[in-house]
């Protein structure tokens, strides 16, 4: 198991390197430098700026320099917000996005898995159809539609919750969390239903019943573990989805998180910010994929066994 984790971590390094390289060069070949949008700037000023941001060096030197910075955890200064570093901007937005993603994940996992398991227990009955229709609704109602509609109904017409902002009130966080989480709740519901149906038709479930175990033991102890394996494997990609979903949700609800910064940076062509955030997001996503991979293996004794044998 330990060796497996080490080898997966080692595999993640080339992935990250690819991400950094692609992003770095994409941003460099982009038409229009960061300062070109401004009104006529004296050439000497541009020169000074370029020197300050090392833009006058050969590109491979810039690349190596950037890699070196990254290794030391430095994302460099922001083009747009002079005097502030990308690190500071990320540090400011991260806690908010993390909190939002956490709530959304909570919504997704709790509602999704419960609905899916519940539906799988009585397939092709109302107990199955009702949660699964709701899940279909969640899948076909994307966050950028769901969010505004929720705001319109609960924020504007009923005035139950604030329409935007990110204060301390729990009311501030309900709508964004639901908006961001509902799509994934729906997806997880379908996934866990499928997984549970598959497992509950296995021979060993019949064995458990033949042993005279109460039905709840059969479901929770013998069924759930195998049934949730696809769910666990999906949590990594789901996290990646939540991060990109935060672009939209933070824009709709005007939440000052990383996602909103990223979209703004994209429009402002704040290249160091884009570069830094992309690398940062990518690292997070790769990490979460790694984590969900490791957990999937860990909860599956057969895979664990193969690892031990294949050493």
């Amino acid at each position: 198991m330990f060796r497996f984790i080490i080898s997966r971590v080692l595999q993640a390094i080339p992935v990250l390197l690819v991400v950094v390289t692609i992003t770095f060069f994409l941003v460099r070949v982009a038409p229009g430098g960061p300062f070109s949008a401004e009104k006529a700037v004296p050439p000497e000023v541009i020169k000074a700026l370029e020197a300050r941001y090392h833009l006058d060096e050969p590109i491979w030197q810039q690349y190596l320099g950037y890699l070196n910075d990254l290794v030391h955890g430095e994302f460099g200064p922001s083009f747009r917000y002079p005097g502030r570093t990308v690190n500071e901007l990320i540090a400011g937005g991260l806690p908010i996005t993390a909190e939002l993603a956490f709530y959304a994940m909570l919504v997704a996992v709790i509602i999704g898995v419960c609905a899916g398991v519940f539906a799988a227990l009585k397939p092709n009955t109302p107990q199955d159809y009702i949660p699964m229709s709701a899940a279909m609704l969640g899948i076909c109602m994307p966050s950028f539609l769901m969010g505004p509609l929720l705001v319109l109904v609960f924020g504007i017409w009923f005035e139950w919750v604030p329409v935007s902002g990110w204060g301390d009130l729990p009311g501030d966080k309900i709508l964004p969390a639901i908006t961001l989480g509902s799509g994934y709740a729906a997806f997880l519901a379908r996934l866990s239903r499928g997984g549970m149906l598959e497992v509950m038709s296995q021979d060993y479930i019949r064995t458990a019943r033949a042993k005279g175990l109460p039905e709840w033991v059969v479901v929770l102890k013998h069924g759930l573990r195998g049934g949730l394996i696809p769910v666990v494997a999906f949590l990594g990609p789901a996290f990646a989805g939540l991060l990109s979903g935060s672009f939209v949700v933070e824009t709709i609800f005007q939440i000052p998180g990383l996602g909103r910064f990223y979209v703004q940076a994209a429009f402002n062509r704040d290249y160091t910010m884009i570069l830094g955030t992309t690398v940062f997001f990518a690292t997070l996503i790769v990490l979460f994929n790694l984590l969900s991979d490791i957990v999937s293996v860990w909860i599956n004794p057969k895979l664990r066994h193969q690892l031990r044998e294949g050493k």
């Binding site: 690819v18 991400v19 992003t23 994209a266 062509r269 884009i274 992309t278 997001f281 994929n289």
Partner: peptide, 20 residues
């Protein structure tokens, strides 16, 4: 597998930003 691990959504956003 390696491509799967890449954060594509972010790349698409990036592509759209960079190339219009």
């Amino acid at each position: 597998d390696i491509l799967y691990a890449l954060p594509f959504m972010i790349f698409i956003v990036l592509l759209m930003v960079v190339f219009g």
